[in-house]
Design a protein around this nucleic acid. Structure first.
Length: 563
RNA sequence: UGGGGAGUAGCCAAGUGGUAAGGCAGCAGGUUUUGAUCCUGCGUAUCGAGGGUUCGAAUCCUUCCUCCCCAACCA
């Protein structure tokens, strides 16, 4: 994948500069630090590919570290799902670690900060703290507890740990600068009391560290060299550095200290990308679950039929930079088409069946045909049966064909893929005028696909034999939102307003060629002329359910639209 | 009336003073038993705007404009 001519992104440049100057002794260690409070989405996939990619490229590896510092939100279920998603994407971590692994060290370092007069126990209420903090235009004012003596701070902090105080009664704060223009430096909270069961440490602690304190400590303890996060943490960088730099005698952290770098998070058109919004979609029933194929979650993409390689290729194509960007889903769709074009075996499937009778073929007469599984002969062949009763796609027939119509129409001749040429002789309608059957004749001389007399047909249709076909459910997905940026709502608007009511269409009458009868969940195919499809976990032997991953590009719809 | 960032074609994104890579999308044509794939060709990008420095500026200086992030005991 790495082409010598390919330019480096800014993080690779930074790392190579550090490597050249020997800043970290030639070492590179990155980390991917999810909070186990939800499922990973395509935005996380970008971060995973970035962090693990860098770890791989520069030989140092990457830690998977769960930032489990808030027991009220985190669960083991999410830990398991996140590990599975990272593995599915194809990455291997150097170690699986947890912020909770460091709770004792973090506590010890906090006592150290207190001892050095760098942190204090504050008794202000939550509302008071907010009030004292000021705002963008008004500087904060010092807490009345700011100059509490060291011994008193230590005593209170230990008693906080011992569980003597209720939640909210006291917090530990860094003593930095209540006047700072950077709100993060106005004596940020380091610890808060939570009498809650933690998914890993149980009831061992009732004191939990805040992200801004925990994160740099974790990175330093693990020897992370480049701590890569998204742009919104930019203003937190001075605090990240402050926390580590208080260790002046280097008792806690080895040098050099890790450094934080920020990149722009991924945004995709026609979708939402925050855990909170995704959770709302699930809870409010707009989708069927975290792994609904319309979701931008990794589990959703997987169920939709995306391959890990396609997601990785997408992450590579979208690039890394520091400017907030909104990437087009078309890039993601292009990535999966590109991968599946090479990898997916071809099959014939009729989504909306229209009956075709070959009138000059005897009842019971059958021709066994051999079809290639892929343009690449290495994929081998399979047998299908051509009989008198067939189904073709309803969309492939027009009673009054538009200009440049290559498909079937009264009197028109087309090729049935891998079979023969047929001509439409008669259109049968029901009482309501609906076309219910096409009576056609075939040219026996064209068996195999071409007419010996050299006459050409422009259209080739996919088809299945009625008696041999297996019935299936096929789910067609469209974008979940109709707005490019659902979050960019007009004044007072709700992002849900642009939810696409037609994002899912379930087809229950699809007919598939028999080789698809026992498709296993996760099996991917190209249904000729339609798109790429993936067998859903809802499939049963003999009763497959397919999800459309992405449709094939279709220049006919454009030509038709233009007239 | 604070602090921190960012502005290069429809969307991403290289470029780090020497005269604007690449990908995606789009358009046109060719091949084709998938209107797919594949192949070929196609973009005057006022490099956010003005001013300046320089033989030479997307790159340096300056003024201005626009957009994003920050006021959880979330991460």
């Amino acid at each position: 994948m790495s082409d010598a001519s390919k330019s480096l992104n800014f993080l690779e440049e930074l790392i190579e500069a550090d490597l050249a100057s020997g800043t970290h002794g030639g070492r590179v260690l990155t980390r991917f630090p999810p909070e186990p409070n939800g499922y990973l989405h395509i935005g996380h996939a970008k971060s995973i590919c970035l962090n693990f990619g860098l770890g791989l490229k520069y030989g140092g590896g990457t830690n998977l570290r769960f930032d489990d510092t808030n027991p009220t939100k985190e669960e083991q279920e999410y830990v398991d799902a996140i590990e599975a998603d990272v593995r599915w994407l194809g990455f291997d971590w150097k170690a699986v670690l947890f912020a909770s692994d460091y709770f004792q060290t973090m506590y010890d370092y906090a006592e150290f900060l207190i001892t050095r007069g760098k942190a204090y126990v504050c008794d202000l209420t939550e509302a008071e703290i907010r009030d004292y903090r000021g705002n963008f235009h008004v500087p904060g004012k010092d807490s009345p507890y700011r100059d509490r003596p060291v011994e008193e701070n230590l005593d209170f902090f230990r008693r906080m740990k011992a569980g003597e105080f209720p939640e909210g009664a006291k917090v530990l704060r860094a003593k930095i600068d209540m006047q700072s223009g950077n709100m993060n430096l106005r004596d940020p909270l380091l610890y808060r009391i939570r009498h809650a069961e933690h998914h890993r440490t149980g009831a061992a602690w009732c004191l939990y560290p805040m992200y801004d304190y925990a994160h740099p400590v974790e990175d330093a303890l693990e020897g992370v060299t480049h701590s890569i996060c998204t742009l919104e943490f930019e203003d937190h960088r001075p605090l990240y550095d402050w926390v580590l730099e208080q260790d002046v005698e280097e008792q806690f952290f080895k040098r050099p200290l890790p450094k934080q770098f920020e990149f722009a998070r991924l945004n995709l058109t026609y979708t939402v990308m925050s855990k909170r919004r995704l959770l709302e979609l699930v809870k409010e029933g707009h989708v069927k679950g975290w792994d609904d194929p319309r979701m931008s979650t990794i589990s959703g993409l997987r169920r939709r039929g995306y391959t890990p390689a396609a997601v990785r290729a997408f992450a590579e194509k979208v690039g890394v930079a520091r400017r907030a960007a909104l990437s087009e889903v078309a890039l993601l769709e292009g990535a999966i088409r590109e991968d599946l074009e090479k990898a997916a075996p071809r099959r014939m499937a009729v989504l909306r069946p229209l009956k075709v009778t070959i009138t000059n073929l005897a009842e019971g007469e059958a021709h066994e045909l051999t079809l290639a599984n892929h343009p690449d002969e290495g994929f081998g062949t399979r047998q299908v049966t051509f009989t008198r009763d067939l189904y073709i796609e309803r969309d492939d027939f027009e009673e009054v064909p538009p200009k440049k119509w290559f498909r079937l129409a009264p009197g028109a001749e087309v090729r049935l893929k891998g079979a023969c040429l047929i001509r439409c002789e008669e259109v049968v309608k029901d009482a309501s005028g609906q076309v219910v059957e096409l009576r056609c004749t075939w040219d026996p001389a064209s068996l195999g696909g071409d007419a010996p007399d050299g006459r050409k047909v422009k259209g080739t249709l996919h088809w299945v034999s009625a008696v041999h076909a297996v019935n299936a459910e096929v789910r067609l997905y469209d974008r979940l939102f109709t707005a490019e940026d659902p979050m960019d709502t007009p004044e007072g608007g709700d992002w849900r307003a642009s939810l696409n009511p037609a994002s899912l269409e379930v087809l229950t009458e699809a007919r598939l060629e028999p080789s698809l009868a026992d498709a296993k969940p996760g099996d991917r195919f190209q249904f000729e002329r339609l798109g790429y499809f993936c067998a859903d976990p809802d499939s049963k032997p003999g009763a497959p359910v397919f999800n459309r991953t992405v449709a094939l590009k279709d220049s006919w719809v454009k030509a038709e639209a233009k007239g």
